[in-house]
């Protein structure tokens, strides 16, 4: 592991690690995410998913992949705020 080129800054995933995962058969974006953990940190993929998708495209020659399934919430939200949301199923 010599490269210090970071692909995913939140989860500290380097270019070498992505290349290794691709070489190991993680040749679709969801597998690549599961194997390297890119996109599971603070930014939830907003910064890294494009870089990973482009690498995947370049290395496999496949058509550009669809983005990983976005996981809500769109931005980090405090538990205290969420606790105040109304719950339609619960009796008042």
């Amino acid at each position: 592991m010599t490269s210090r080129v970071l692909v995913c800054r939140c989860e500290d995933v380097t270019l070498d690690e992505v290349e290794e995962a691709l070489a190991g058969g993680a040749t679709d974006l969801e597998s690549l995410k599961r194997y390297t953990g890119f996109g599971t940190g603070w930014c939830q993929g907003k910064q890294c998913v494009v870089a990973c998708a482009r690498l995947l495209e370049a290395r496999t020659g496949a058509a550009p992949p669809a983005p990983i399934t976005p996981r809500p919430p769109l931005h980090p939200v405090p538990l205290g705020l969420l606790a105040g949301l109304p719950d339609p199923e619960e009796a008042p």
Partner: peptide, 10 residues
């Protein structure tokens, strides 16, 4: 934990 933020749900 009230001030701690949820990052992702699935």
């Amino acid at each position: 934990l009230a001030g701690v933020k949820v990052l992702r749900q699935w």
